[in-house]
Computed example of a mutant assay.
Amino acid sequence: MTATIGWAWQRSEAPPAPLAVVAWHAAADGLLHRLMEMDDAALAPLQATACGSALVVAADRPEALPWSPGVAYAAPCDADPALWLPTLWVPDVPLDLLAHAMHQRHRRRPLLLWPDPAAVVPLDRMLPASGPMLARIQAHRSGASVEAP
């Protein structure tokens, strides 16, 4: 028998430095457009993944992250770097236990846990950001056929 424990999001008292930008729906379209305008040198430190209506772009340093209207930021959790959380919000339960439960349930690492819209986004398929990779994301988001390079 598995017990379910309720939890809620609360404001982070000490937001970490962001290492990912997260966008949903129209904001994801705007972020994708912004990325497609960037040159190869600006894209070089970035990795990206898309899942449903989400677009997540990560970098190894905050200053490399792009900005676009409507985006939010995320960072790995100190208790378990394979669990990423929004920088401004944190669950009100012990993060090590939550991370363990999330990894047991989803069987993927790393994972982004997001409050609104409530979602778990797998980050294990992040790829280096490049023009062709972004074009595939755009084609997928628009419903066009997607061809491998």
Rank of each mutant, 00 (worst) to 15 (best):
L95I: 03
L111H: 11
M102E: 14
T87P: 03
V120C: 13
R108W: 01
A139T: 00
M133A: 08
H106M: 12
P110C: 04
P132N: 06
L112I: 05
H106N: 14
P91G: 13
A135R: 03
P91V: 08
R136G: 00
R136P: 00
T87H: 10
T87M: 09
M133D: 01
G131H: 09
W89F: 12
P132G: 03
R107C: 10
L123K: 13
L111T: 08
L98G: 11
Q104L: 15
D116V: 09
M133Y: 05
V121D: 02
R136V: 00
G131L: 04
L113H: 12
R136Q: 10
R136L: 02
I137S: 00
L134F: 04
P132Y: 05
A129N: 05
V93E: 07
L111E: 04
I137R: 02
A139Y: 02
L95P: 05
S130L: 00
A118E: 15
L83K: 05
R105S: 14
S130K: 00
Q138A: 04
Q138C: 00
W89G: 01
W114E: 11
S130T: 07
L127R: 13
L134S: 03
L95A: 14
R109Y: 05
W84T: 08
V93S: 12
A99D: 12
Q138K: 03
H100K: 14
G131W: 00
H100C: 08
L85K: 10
P94R: 15
H103V: 02
M102R: 14
M126F: 07
P86H: 11
T87C: 14
L123E: 03
R105E: 11
A135F: 02
H100V: 09
A135M: 04
D92F: 11
A135V: 01
Q104H: 15
A101P: 02
Q104R: 15
V121P: 05
D124S: 08
L83P: 02
Q104D: 13
A99F: 10
L111D: 02
P115L: 07
A119E: 10
R108T: 15
